[in-house]
Every structure is written in structure tokens, then in C-alpha cells.
Amino acid sequence: MSPQDIYLRYGSVVYRRARRLLGDDQAAKDACQDVFLRLFRSLPDFERASPVTWLYKVTTNYCLNLIRDEVRHRKQLEARATSEPSTAATPSLADLLRGFPEDLQEIAIYYFVDEMSQDEIARIAGISQRTVSNRLTAFRNLAKAAWTNVFEEAPETQ
């Protein structure tokens, strides 16, 4: 297949996924461009792999990297502007993933956002189901601890 045929066949997988994770249409179009440029560069890898699995993994990692950049960028701005973190009315995915280890972020996206089974996650991430299960447990524990800290650090109002 020519690059254009590949894009026409598989483009919506990347576009939808990026739009969902990034929440922005223009960013999703940029993601399409970059992911497919990467694909054409790694065409033999793509042709050897399961196409949908390859695209899910690469697009997810691409979007996670963008989100991490956003988090880093925001941290820098916060550090410059004020000692107080910004408070958005609606937390973005970047807010939700902030502070979690990268290997847990990817698994959490597949499980909580995509609602994939642990078997599907294992296939996309290239790890065992046991590892998926362990990482989900670790993610839950960290999330629980984070929420506990939020309440412990909150000032008493009564």
C-alpha cells in the first residue's frame, strides 16, 4: 500500500484516539501527521506488527509525551508565576496523570479511559497480564494515597 492508502485506511484510528486523549481537534490533526510520518519511517515494523495494536501503542505514547510536556511546561510557569499551583475548574488528563510514573500512566489510560480488558492491554503494551494487573494495583494505591494527602493537607474549615 502507498503511504496515502495506509493513511486513508488507518488514519481514523490515530485521529480518534488522539482527539480523545488530547481533547483538541488541531492537536489531534498534528498527532495524525506525526504518527504517520513515524509509521512511514518504520514501515517494516508496522507491516510486521498487528496494525491496530501498533497504532494504539504509538499514538498513546505520542499523546502521553505531549501531556507530560504540558505538565512540565505548566510546572515551569507555576514556578515562575507563583508558588501556588493553578486550579482549573475541570481537571484535564494532564492533571489526572500528574505525578504518576510513566509506566503506570500508559496502563491507566488503556484501562480507565479506553476500558480495555487486561488481556487487550497486555497485547498492546507487550507485557504480561500479571504485569498489567500489578501496575493497575500500583496505580490504584498511588491514587488512593494522593487523595488521602489531598484531604490531609486541606485546611480545616470547621
Binding site: P3, I6, L8, G11, S12, Y15, R16, L37, F40
Partner: peptide, 13 residues
């Protein structure tokens, strides 16, 4: 879903 109209026909690996 409507795919963004990107044109990769001029691209080679």
C-alpha cells in the same frame, strides 16, 4: 468519523 484531509502522496519512507 471524518478523517482530516492530510495528503501523504508525496511521502516516501
Amino acid at each position: 468519523v471524518v478523517l482530516p484531509s492530510l495528503d501523504f502522496s508525496g511521502v516516501s519512507p
